[in-house]
Amino acid sequence: MAFERIFVEKSIAERPATLAVLKKINALDRFEIIEKYDDYFGRVKKPYLHKRNQLNLYLAEKKGQLVKEAPDAYGLAGAPHFYFVHAYNCIYECEYCYLQGYFNSPDIVLFTNHDEISKEIIRHIHQYPNQEIWFHAGEFSDSLALSQISGELELYHQLFKKFPHARLELRTKSANTKVLESLDPLDNMITSFSMSPQSSVKKYDHKTAALKLRLKAMEKLSMLGHPVAIHLDPIIWSPNWESDYQELVHKITETINPDNIRYVSIGVVRFPKKMFKDIKNNYPDSDLVHQPLITTTNDLVRYRKPLRFKILNTVESMLKTAGFKAPQIYKCME
């Protein structure tokens, strides 16, 4: 991963976690010290597509709220869901990604104060002593894409080992499972792979791992005993969407027994209106902007209800036919 420039906050420059990242990217002699990352990051509007050849890296200390409550229908129902922030932004370039309008900059921020984030996770776990509680690591970044350099997985592995009733979900579109492979499987540390038909990956998920690589990575983790899950989200309509998803479900079940997949989420593509404007600016020729979408009165851009339900119900039915059981499947954001 080649970053154009690397900035390090003065207060954490000497910390072992920071130095470890710099060492892994061979940047011990080419970083620039700044006071605070947010003196620059998001302070000016940096065009999203600058991530292609002008991507900077910030190493910083996460301040403020370290653990946040997840939005409704974020994960399996019946348990509280939270997310913690270990990074901002992603090296991948998915055309539908909400991050393109979120931070006003595509630059990557890696937070290296994992000890403080861990303490905050533990504080939340103690609030639910006898109840399943979920933590997600992929709200603002891919959980695995940079895991070999960001170095936090080992720490969170140790943490969640102590609290079996707490669950950690790592969401990814990568096939980068090296760090996880070196760790003991934990029943409560689940790696979830976002999957789409290869035609869709090629069209919309730039720089991400190809479908077959994601499937292989999932298979490998599962064989090693790591729990895995799948997100079929966002499903994007195409003239061949039914056959594409039928083939995808077939490939999944050919790779791994449905009983060994913890859960599958399904969701159709949807955006806030403002974000859709960003997509149109960044990808004016994308098929995404020519989808049969409508703008609702509450400023959401999505398919009409009959199409949304048709897609969700059809894919749910495909999964059930392929051997998934109803409790394994949940519909996202509906």
Partner: peptide, 17 residues
């Protein structure tokens, strides 16, 4: 302080800002 808004050229051939 920095101006929040930035502007991109219509025909730039470089990636230098």
């Amino acid at each position: 302080d920095f101006q929040f808004k930035s502007f991109s050229s219509s025909h730039s051939t470089s990636s230098i800002d």
